[in-house]
């Protein structure tokens, strides 16, 4: 039953993997891999000696770590709260509404956020704050580097919350109902049931999602940053992925982009193995 998948991966993943060679050559598609000049670790060195490196590293890690700390528990919490709702139609409505933003692409979603936060007289948030007397001059939300992380994390949260919680909702749905019945007979309250039955019941899913989330800590969403970034918040919004895009892909330096991609993959794999190992030690759950 497993072999077809192995075969599949050999063909569709392992064979094309020879492409990583591109990281070590100055790739020129016209003459092909074989005749492209070998440059070794040049592109890796270039990244580390770049004066922008500390800035992009800080932005990537900062935004992703905080983002993970906020949105990861938020999705679980959302699923748990939803599970507590007994009114059927309300539950369904909330669930459907929460997943709607997933279908609005970032270009459009980001446009809406920018318009709402605008510092001009059409910005609904600034107008609201002004009217309530909380501020006396409009805040340039999108132009203030110190606010960018917050805005990015919050808007990603709104966009992805419902969608990210689906897996947990499914896992909760799979918990044996008899456990709850038994707990009720024991006189357990809502919170105790959540803590003693629901959470342990979905812990395997949580652990796996967390391991993958940790391994992806160097990846940032390009779609969202491309829309939300501007000259004013550049110092807070430029991440590794964006920088590679600006310095690499936009300037036809595909080898540079591939090299940084490879580097990130190695880091991700190490993180995954570490997270998996730790998780095995602590919870006895993991990927393998």
């Amino acid at each position: 039953m497993v072999l077809p998948a192995i075969l599949f991966l050999v063909v569709f993943s392992y064979i094309p993997m020879v492409g990583v060679v591109m990281s070590f050559v100055d790739y020129n598609p016209v003459v092909g891999f074989a005749q492209s000049e070998w440059v070794g670790l040049k592109y890796f060195k270039e990244l580390f000696t770049d004066q922008a490196f500390p800035m992009i590293m800080k932005n990537t890690l900062g935004m992703n770590l905080i983002g993970l700390a906020v949105s990861f528990p938020a999705a679980i919490l959302f699923a748990l709260l939803l599970n507590e709702v007994r009114v059927g139609w309300f539950k369904k409505t909330v669930q459907t509404a929460s997943y709607l933003p997933h279908f609005v692409s970032w270009v459009i979603f980001g446009g809406i956020i920018i318009q709402m936060l605008s510092a001009g007289n059409d910005g609904i948030i600034n107008n609201l704050l002004l009217r309530m007397g909380l501020i006396d001059r409009p805040i340039n939300f999108m132009g203030e580097p110190s606010l960018f992380w917050g805005i990015h994390i919050a808007s990603s949260l709104i966009k992805g919350l419902g969608w990210n919680s689906i897996m947990y909702i499914a896992a909760i749905g799979g918990i044996n109902g008899e456990l709850y019945e038994a707990a009720e007979i024991d006189g357990a309250g809502r919170f105790r049931k959540m803590w003693n039955i629901t959470l342990p019941g979905i812990s395997a899913t949580i652990v796996i999602m967390l391991i993958f989330a940790i391994s992806g800590i160097l990846n940032s969403s390009m779609d969202s940053t491309l829309v939300l970034q501007n000259d004013l918040n550049y110092t807070a919004s430029e991440t590794i992925d964006m920088y590679v895009y600006h310095v690499g892909i936009s300037n036809y330096r595909f080898s540079y982009a591939t090299a940084i991609g490879l580097l990130k993959s190695v880091v991700a794999l190490i993180l995954l193995l570490t997270a998996n190992y730790t998780s095995k030690k602590i919870t006895d759950k993991g990927l393998f």
Partner: peptide
């Protein structure tokens, strides 16, 4: 690439 880096630093 050097130019791009100089420019993006300058713009910032």
């Amino acid at each position: 690439a050097q130019q791009v880096k100089i420019n993006s630093y300058w713009d910032q």
